Amino acid sequence: MLRLSLASKIVLGAIVAVILAFMYVPLMLVVLNSFNAARIVSWPVAEFSLEWWGKAFTSQPIKDAILNSLLVAAGATLIALILGTLVAFALQRYSFFGQRAVNLLVVLPIALPGIVTGVALNNTYNQILEPIGINVGFFGMIIAHGTFCIVMVFNNVLARLRRLNPGIEEASKDLGATPWQTFRLVTFPQFRSAFIAGGILAFALSFDEVYVTIFTAPPGVDTLPLWIMNQMARPNEANVVNVVATVVILASFIPVWVSQRLSRDVAERD
């Protein structure tokens, strides 16, 4: 076992403390300014107030933006769960011509800059689909998010499938189980944690996406990231943005906790 000297421990501890401070002090400033009585963001906070929390929770534009973000993220996650899992099974279970090319094409959207994806889809919607009478509208934004969310599910499920023992499925078939019974009772439970983790990652990735959303959102439709970006140009509304950001920070603990539980369960099972 590697043993560190006292000096090494102090140095490493200091580095870790600086990194954590760099990551979390700005978040704490956001939380504190959400209770700032001043109309503009300031430091130190001279007086605390719940005024901005009241305005945020009664603001219809914020409610609409949150609902839009949830709907888009849920739709994109559903697309990712279905298509990502199917592609993962196809690439892991079968050999066919162009297999590597399919793998590359599935992963490519996450490597492309979001602005490139957004411009490409915007051109497709406006210059190809609309002239022939197809107006994708809100659904087009969901499809756009789904293109890069698929990768999250695909990578997680594929990695898990490669670690499965095929003998268990063969035993299930030998005992008379139908293909659906084998999948439901044997196969799916073995990659369920990866499936859920991929869905959580896909949802989070879609929920805070900005660049693709800018180019594919229908006129007058704001998701939460777009609403925040627009409000940042209005300094008098900055503390309302801090309230929304604080709620998002607190809500983020839920998927993090779920992911840790899933990872722990997988480790214990392996």
Rank of each mutant, 00 (worst) to 15 (best):
N155G: 06
N156F: 02
V157G: 04
V157C: 07
V157A: 08
V157Q: 05
A159S: 13
A159K: 07
R160Y: 08
L161W: 02
L161K: 03
R162A: 14
L164A: 08
L164P: 03
L164H: 01
N165Y: 01
N165S: 13
P166K: 05
P166R: 01
I168V: 14
E169P: 02
A171H: 07
S172G: 15
S172A: 15
D174A: 15
D174E: 09
L175G: 09
L175M: 13
G176R: 07
T178Q: 02
T178R: 12
P179I: 10
P179H: 04
Q181K: 13
Q181M: 13
Q181W: 03
T182Q: 08
T182E: 06
F183Y: 09
F183L: 14
R184F: 14
L185S: 07
L185Q: 08
T187R: 02
R192V: 15
S193R: 01
A194D: 05
A194P: 07
F195A: 14
F195Y: 14
I196F: 00
A197T: 06
A197G: 09
A197V: 05
A197L: 10
G198K: 10
G198L: 11
L201N: 03
F203M: 08
F203G: 06
F203S: 07
A204G: 14
L205K: 12
S206I: 03
S206E: 09
F207Y: 14
F207I: 05
F207L: 10
F207G: 03
D208Y: 05
V210P: 01
Y211D: 12
Y211I: 11
Y211S: 14
T213N: 03
I214N: 00
F215D: 04
F215C: 10
A217Q: 00
A217Y: 04
P218V: 06
P219F: 12
V221I: 07
V221S: 08
T223N: 11
T223G: 10
P225M: 05
L226V: 07
L226S: 10
I228Y: 01
I228P: 01
I228S: 01
I228A: 02
M229P: 04
N230D: 11
N230L: 12
Q231G: 08
M232V: 15
M232G: 13
N236K: 11
A238P: 08
A238R: 09
N239V: 04
V240G: 09
V240S: 11
V241D: 08
V241I: 15
V241P: 02
N242A: 10
V244Q: 02
V247L: 07
